[in-house]
Nucleic acid binder design. Structure first.
Lengths: 122, 122
DNA sequence: ACCGTTGTCAACCAACCGGTTGAATACGCG
DNA sequence: CGCGTATTCAACCGGTTGGTTGACAACGGT
């Protein structure tokens, strides 16, 4: 199994949790320590620490080795690789839809000119 | 808990699996039945059926009720809502980074003009 | 040198996930 | 009607996940 595949697994998995998405949203505004991040939620600090670890292993977040205070920093590059993946297939799908739509339009304005074994026809 | 939150949970969770990402990639090219989708993998048909169900519940995929054949169709709109979410925070993070970078540049070219309690300074 | 602050590690638990097999359902066709 | 094809449902299994609590490690300040 590919390495970038594994990274995508982790990245999408990391964002599949609303608490972690919330952390990402807050980290987009400013870096923060685990303690600061944990404060708004009513779960234990350890739980948030685990969440941050998941984000870190997904490459979405880095921690400046700064002694006992280790501020968490959002890594925009990892988000970028996710959108790159998604957009690739979204565009492909929309392009295909556009072509199919055009085909149907052509068929509608003249039934005689049947499409000769076109791609999108089942 | 919000409804769109739940939808994002499912959507990201759905793409957190390489088999399901592969299915999405193939569906971007053309619609397909579960049987066709299952053929390349050496897992059971039922396993792929489950994967498709996950994609469907995430809104990433729809199925035209076409009798016993129910072709699976990629829903580009759901992908769009994912990129919208990601891009929002990626842009925010990059903007913040850009501002910090500019601040550091300003500081570097003249130590006298110290920034007066700026936002990004720790 | 000690204390408080900050964060992680470890063990445990319930719930969920991806896979399996076997049975059931839903049609189209002869 | 009854068979074959296509797909889903149900029960089960082992591994992972999100949460808990308790102990411990790493520093900074006084």
């Amino acid at each position: 199994m590919d390495d970038s595949t594994d990274q995508l697994d982790r990245a999408f998995g990391a964002l599949a949790d609303s608490t972690r998405r919330d952390l990402v949203a807050r980290l987009a505004v400013s870096d923060a320590t685990v303690g600061e991040l944990a404060e708004p939620y009513d779960v234990s600090l350890q739980a948030i620490s685990k969440h941050v670890k998941v984000l870190e292993e997904a490459g979405l977040v880095t921690r400046s080795r700064d002694a006992q205070r280790r501020p968490v920093h959002l890594n925009a590059g990892a988000l970028d690789s996710m959108t790159t993946w998604i957009e690739r297939y979204r565009r492909e799908a929309e392009e295909r839809y556009r072509r199919l739509d055009a085909l149907l339009s052509r068929m509608a304005e003249g039934d005689d000119e049947r499409p000769t074994d076109q791609e999108d026809t089942p």
